[in-house]
Amino acid sequence: MHPYRIMLADDHIMLRSGIRKIIEDFKDMEVVGEVGDGLELLNMLKKVLTDMIILDISMPNLRGIEATREIKNTHPEIKILILSMHKSKEYLYQAISAGAEGYLLKDDSDKELFTAINTIRNNNIYLSPNLSRDLTHDFIETCRGGNKPSDDPLTAREKQVLKLIAEGNTCKNISNLLYISIRTAQHHRASILKKLNIKKMPELVKYAISKGYITSSE
Rank of each mutant, 00 (worst) to 15 (best):
149 P>W: 05
75 H>W: 06
78 I>N: 08
113 L>H: 14
83 L>M: 11
146 G>S: 06
72 K>G: 05
166 A>Q: 00
135 L>S: 08
108 D>S: 12
130 N>P: 09
82 I>Q: 07
119 T>F: 15
72 K>T: 02
129 P>K: 15
95 A>T: 05
134 D>T: 04
124 N>I: 10
83 L>Y: 08
112 E>N: 15
163 K>Y: 00
89 K>Y: 14
106 K>E: 03
129 P>M: 13
113 L>W: 12
126 Y>K: 01
153 P>I: 04
117 I>D: 14
164 L>W: 03
134 D>E: 07
124 N>M: 13
154 L>R: 05
142 T>S: 02
114 F>G: 02
156 A>E: 11
150 S>Q: 12
86 H>V: 02
151 D>N: 12
109 S>P: 05
103 Y>W: 09
149 P>R: 01
121 R>M: 11
143 C>E: 01
109 S>Q: 06
125 I>T: 09
72 K>R: 05
150 S>G: 03
123 N>K: 13
114 F>T: 10
100 A>E: 04
163 K>C: 08
96 I>Y: 01
127 L>M: 11
160 Q>L: 04
98 A>T: 01
155 T>L: 09
84 S>D: 12
110 D>T: 10
126 Y>T: 01
163 K>M: 07
132 S>Y: 14
95 A>D: 04
88 S>M: 02
102 G>Q: 00
128 S>W: 15
151 D>E: 15
121 R>S: 00
123 N>E: 14
77 E>S: 13
87 K>G: 11
84 S>F: 11
115 T>S: 11
136 T>A: 08
165 I>N: 10
150 S>F: 07
103 Y>E: 10
94 Q>P: 10
147 N>G: 15
116 A>G: 09
142 T>G: 07
83 L>K: 10
106 K>N: 05
122 N>A: 13
135 L>K: 07
129 P>I: 02
85 M>S: 00
150 S>Y: 01
113 L>G: 05
158 E>N: 01
148 K>D: 04
99 G>A: 07
100 A>P: 03
